[in-house]
Amino acid sequence: MMIIRPVGRKDLDGLMNLARSAGVGLTSLPVNEDRLARRISRSELSFAGELDRADQGYVFVLEDSTTGAIAGICALEAAVGLKEPWYNYRVGTIVHASEELGVYSRHETLFLSNDHTGYSELCTLFLHPDFRANRNGGLLSKSRFLFLAQFPHLFGKVVVAEMRGVSDEQGRSPFWEALGRHFFSIDFAQADYLTGIGQKAFVAELMPKHPVYIDFLPPDAQAVIGQTHENTRPAVAMLESEGFRYEGYVDIFDAGPTVQAYVHEVRAVKESREVAVRLTDPLPEGERQCYLVSNTALSGFRVILVETVAPTHEVCLTPEQAQALNVSEGEHVRCVALSPKEAS
């Protein structure tokens, strides 16, 4: 069975393997034992309630309980920008108009902003290629919504996710070439790397602080503002189906969109319910559907995917499933349908 649980010290080897399979593309999951160990330790302290909001970061792993393999990772930052500034460009509009001269022109501008300060962030999502099946992706990504629903006091009112912007096979970003490069004589890949290792604020401080008129950028750079990398489109589609929206905030390096939602309005948060566990084996007959089910513990948080009949005031779980969640008959779990209802 596939189980989501908080990362622990013993997972270091598993994370290193995962990082190796991710290659250089995922800068937030570096093949670097020291940094992974620090990340694990920060997560453990966060779950233990020993860190300030500014430092809290919750990391989860997807474990194959039969082999003990680490199949994926996902994380939540409690609040971004509280220790060092969190930067985005906001795509704004300026109208230059004069009725007398018959002039009316709209101009999009990029304003450097710290508007997302204090918001929570979905980050570091990676599923090992061998496990990209059986709805593991949905379980991995959406398990975080049950955590947000269960512990809203740990998070900001809005949750954001930065989507990778457009770049080619060589890692060349047209937006970076048109803007960042002028201010910062390094490659996008290097800027991206510095971002991954937590130096983004340094880099951001070298970027233009005054609004940039998009008109002044070459067409290929203009075209990718707010656009997602081809490989990241399914992730955007998933978040959009949960109620996330692009509100005009883009990454300062590659102009990839940041999508955002009020935590309480995310579909999987809003529709999730706490219900009692009823143990049955086998699960009752009837129309079955996939549900995300979590327990209600903080440091012992678990999520699994269950294909069962619609929960009422209680949800039917097999003893094996209940054991994976560390719950027994009558105890409460939180559940929500894995996917939004198809529009009928």
């Binding site: 002028h182 940039v212 008129y213 002044f216």
Partner: peptide, 12 residues
Amino acid sequence: LMPSYPIYVPLL
């Protein structure tokens, strides 16, 4: 009616 924000010359 002209742009009032600073213009970064390298972008031109």
